[in-house]
């Protein structure tokens, strides 16, 4: 997996329901590109995460898989890390 076919999406400080539409617009733009095979969600800036964000990520995963594309998570820390662990996301996503 090289840089060229990897797209990175960076949610803001609050990764929640309100952030959905912007996030969706961002990833739909990337998924629409046939060159992109892997979407990396960089959670570096995220300080708050709620269940909506988890649903958003799962939905993203479903949409990506429908197009045979991968979703990876990276830079997990703090609350986001704890929440994703409780949700057992390490079983669903490749986490870097």
């Amino acid at each position: 997996m090289n840089e060229a076919n990897t797209a990175v999406i960076r949610p803001g400080k609050r990764f929640d329901f309100q952030a959905y539409r912007a996030f969706r617009d961002a990833y739909e733009l990337e998924l629409a590109k046939s060159s992109v095979h892997c979407l990396v969600v960089d959670l570096q800036e995220v300080q708050y995460i709620d269940s909506a964000a988890l649903g958003i990520l799962l939905l993203l995963r479903d949409k990506a898989l429908a197009q045979n594309k991968m979703v990876e998570l990276c830079n997990l820390h703090g609350v986001a890390k704890d929440v994703l662990e409780i949700a057992n996301f390490h079983k669903l996503f490749k986490i870097n």
Binding site: Y20, R21, S51, A52, A53, L54, G55, I56, L59, D62
Partner: peptide
């Protein structure tokens, strides 16, 4: 607790689909 968390997340996922539908 795990089941509860799972169902909460599943609810969120479905909700997001509903949001897509609404949009």
């Amino acid at each position: 607790l795990g089941l509860f968390v799972d169902s909460t997340i599943e609810t969120s996922r479905t909700s997001m689909e509903l949001v897509d539908s609404i949009d």
